[in-house]
Amino acid sequence: MTKQTQTAVKKPTAVDENADVAIEIIGMNKWFGDFHVLRDIDLKVMKGERIVIAGPSGSGKSTLIRCINRLEEHQQGQIIVDGTELTSDIKKIDEVRREVGMVFQHFNLFPHLSILENCTLAPIWVRGVPKAEAEETAMHYLERVKIPEQALKYPGQLSGGQQQRVAIARSLCMNPQIMLFDEPTSALDPEMIKEVLDVMVSLAEDGMTMLVVTHEMGFARQVANQVVFMDQGQIVEQNNPEDFFSNPQHERTKEFLSQILH
């Protein structure tokens, strides 16, 4: 596994105690058929907080963050995002999705649209932003992820790392309050992981509320306020990164960390 380079990144400041709640999950349960994937999940994320969710594959961490913008439906409990509770009400789901950006493991760029069109489609057709303004915003975020020169190319012409950076820019163009990352570096060549992590670190420095499912423990150490460790659909341990890595409490956590940190 690739170690996050310890550049001189300023450690994001601790979150204000009185900050607003961004996401609140209360007693949430989910089943796939008879399989109980998520069990009694309770999680509170404050605005500006950066949570890293770790755990073995099949532990339900991806499903958890997919529930937050209702790509998966939960059957029990409550998920409240930015004051809006997720129910089967389509309007509320769309409202939440407009405010929550998501970055996928396999980028999921739209291959039939140019990079610029990928970034402007949603602002134009969901937010009603004029085309010129949307393009300006898109170019701003493409510069931020350091690939403005690729704007007129198609996703198929870009490397994996570039595509993932475009995917991040595409989400940012909707000006989201919260960003969800579902294993953003797992499908990348080792040489390209850093360029994506760098973008995520700079987002964190700007105070974006982030939920990141990842195996990049270096990233977790560097930017997370909290690390959540999941196994078999449950939150097994949750702590700040220093204590989580140096002094894990639960047996399962110790076993997991000994497997991946060597």
Partner: peptide, 8 residues
């Protein structure tokens, strides 16, 4: 899923 997550 990507389209949905963008609010389309």
């Amino acid at each position: 899923e990507a389209a949905a997550s963008l609010g389309l």
